[in-house]
Design a protein around this nucleic acid. Structure first.
Lengths: 156, 156
DNA sequence: GCCTAAAACTTTAAACTTAAAATATTTTAA
DNA sequence: TTAAAATATTTTAAGTTTAAAGTTTTAGGC
């Protein structure tokens, strides 16, 4: 008697690869949309928005190194972005009392105002781009992503 | 009698924003892992891998413009990457008979061999990074992403 | 106090990216 | 046939990103 042949299913590893590519495609698509909106409607960029967003969240400001760690980008990168935002009066560099090496980046009132305007639009763009997702979809998706994220956190 | 106050739930728009940020964080984490692996274990980069991957899929090669369209990057971008890969003997530029403007980029045997090595490792990295995801998780995730992707496709 | 190591930034070099201009070739249409 | 438009690609200029090197300042150990 021939051995039973199990129905050939795609190996889990291939399925994971496939869903990864889909994940990447989805996120790239959304991100491209956001970048375009930021550029066309507000003459700004995603990295600038990210910096402003971080500084808005920490209203006392962040040291340059804290900012780069929070955003997971290099130190040199935030230097450049904060330079530009400073020139435009949206961000201020404040000396840290007692440590002349360090500087704190803070939003100016003008910067905060600009960010709030951006944030409102940003939320609405995202809402459009993710229009099909129900509360249940979101809940399930969120749990699934938590699995991956906690796995990432372990490895650090 | 007082009117019933519905329990204040987070607006759908905020929930979508929140899950978007989580999606972004997840994908960035995985992508960072892949880039690090490509660099540390194979002295290469993600854009190079992407180009090789596209050329491996189309074994007859792709015109430069087809390649840039497929990868959704600019023409000039692939020119530079293909230049480098050519110098290293991994990719070949072939004239298109009947159209002297066009060129077809193809993997060399050496390039194909290098890619297959990379692809095997890549699949295993992804498999590790997405380790917690079951077949069911993947199925559900895939359907959810399809919702967003089809919405994206509409807008083009 | 003085020297070394660590910390906080900035600068630099290399790779990637895009949009726009430039080049070469092919197609269209008058 | 030939001028104009379209196509395929490369080149260029400007900007982003990172890792690594460089600068300044602080903290410890002797």
């Amino acid at each position: 008697m021939k051995p039973e042949i199990a129905p050939t299913t795609e190996p889990l590893s291939k399925a994971r690869l496939r869903v990864w590519l889909k994940l990447l495609k989805t996120v790239n698509g959304v991100e491209t949309g956001i970048r375009r909106n930021l550029r066309d409607d507000h003459q700004t960029t995603l990295p600038r928005f990210d910096v402003m967003s971080a500084l808005a969240r920490f209203s006392d400001g962040l040291k340059m190194s804290e900012l780069s760690k929070f955003l997971k980008v290099s130190n040199g990168n935030v230097t450049g972005i904060v330079d530009k935002l400073s020139e435009e009066g949206l961000v201020l560099r404040v000396a840290v009392p007692g440590d002349r090496r360090a500087q704190i980046a803070r939003l100016t009132p003008k910067g905060l105002e600009a960010f709030e305007e951006l944030a409102e639009h940003h939320e609405s763009w995202i809402n459009n781009l993710l229009e099909g997702l129900s509360v249940d979809d979101i809940e399930t998706l969120s749990s699934t992503l938590d699995v991956v994220l906690s796995h990432q956190a372990e490895k650090e």
